[in-house]
């Protein structure tokens, strides 16, 4: 079995997918870093102060102004009110929510990237893991070996999981190294607040606690890792069902992007709660961001995501072991 996994890992490395992902990261992270830097400069210019307390106070007032506007829908007002209280909490406890530094960038990257960017990287890895064997015709060679089919598929799946983990750590590393050039490399021990809860329009701070940033990052990437595995598993199933790499990648991209768009309207269409793509933003639970969608909680999200992953796996294995390979 371990030989099979080793074999699959070699195949994935040979396909240079990891190289492609590394290149994507190396090109995009400097752009994001620069964008972040520009944004910060702009805020400092607008507020007229580089003191984070002044900036935070200004942001609170800006949001109070948004509340006063009649064009903001009620449900957003609710979120804004909670957000104001959260910022006020940071201010009152003298903790800078965005202390500049490479680790803060690493944290921001996962919070922003968890719903689209990281899943996209996973799709690049996973979408052709089985279908490419069909396209290249190597599937026959693979299946003529005296090994049960499920073992072959399982070794592919495990190799995929290992690759996903590798890509996540690679992302942390590259984010840290590249953004540090501008923001500096300090900040692993900066305090981050976790544990905000809300009840109606009230922010509950009973469970609030301070984490060192490295721990928060570890936890946030742990959640992102779970998301990536779920997306990877879905892509894995699609890759078994489709015999052509381009179409399996296309299907997954379409699903991911439309899922992301639909997530925006999920508060007015409750059935979307059962879509895996509505639950991608798991890091929101850690940061204490309230969802517009009623009834969202971490156990519920994990249940929905796991259910999708398990069903996908069952379909993938059932199909692969029964499939006729003719051509």
């Amino acid at each position: 079995m371990s030989n099979l996994i080793y074999n699959e890992m070699i195949k994935m490395i040979r396909k240079k997918r990891l190289l492609v992902i590394t290149l994507i990261l190396i090109v995009l992270i400097p752009i994001f870093t620069y964008a972040q830097y520009k944004m910060l400069q702009n805020t400092i210019k607008n507020v007229g102060s580089s003191n984070w307390r002044t900036i935070l106070q200004q942001q609170i007032v800006d949001q109070q102004n948004r509340l006063a506007s009649s064009r903001v829908p009620e449900e957003y007002k609710h979120l804004i009110k909670l957000n104001i209280q959260q910022r006020q909490y940071y201010l009152d406890h003298n903790i800078n929510p965005n202390a500049p530094g490479a680790p803060t960038f690493v944290r921001g990257f996962v919070e922003q990237g968890i719903s689209l960017f990281l899943p996209l990287l996973v799709i690049i890895l996973a979408a052709d893991i089985v279908s490419s064997e069909h396209s290249l015709g190597t599937i026959k060679l693979l299946l003529t070996r005296p090994v049960p089919r499920w073992k072959i598929l399982l070794s592919k799946y495990i190799a995929l999981l290992l690759n996903i983990s590798f890509v996540m750590i690679l992302t942390i590393l590259l984010c840290y190294l590249i953004s540090g050039i501008i923001f500096g490399y300090k900040g692993w021990t900066f305090p981050v607040i976790s544990g905000f809860q809300s009840k109606g329009e009230e922010l509950i701070t009973d469970y609030v606690h301070v984490l060192p940033q490295w721990k928060y990052i570890l936890m946030a990437y742990g959640l992102a890792w779970f998301i990536c595995i779920v997306i990877g598993t879905l892509s894995f199933m699609v890759s078994v069902l489709m015999k052509n790499t381009a179409s399996s990648m296309g299907v997954m991209l379409a699903a991911l992007i439309s899922g992301n768009l639909l997530e925006q309207v999920a508060h007015s269409w409750p059935a979307l709660k059962y879509s895996a793509f509505t639950h991608l933003r798991l890091t929101d639970y850690l940061a204490g961001n309230t969802s517009l969608i009623p009834g969202m909680s971490l156990p519920f999200s994990l249940t929905v995501l796991s259910a999708w992953a398990i069903v996908s796996l069952v379909i993938a294995f059932a199909t692969f072991t029964r499939q006729d390979v003719l051509t």
Binding site: L162, S194, V208, L211, K215, Y221, L223, W225, F226, L298
Partner: peptide, 29 residues
């Protein structure tokens, strides 16, 4: 590295679930 990454991230995942579902109350600010 991939194997190590897997273990680290799995640990992070378990930690985060623990932290969110049963947050420590002693560390009050």
């Amino acid at each position: 590295t991939a194997l190590l990454s897997f273990l680290i991230l799995a640990a992070g995942f378990v930690l985060s679930i623990q932290d969110i579902l049963s947050p420590p109350t002693t560390n009050a600010l």
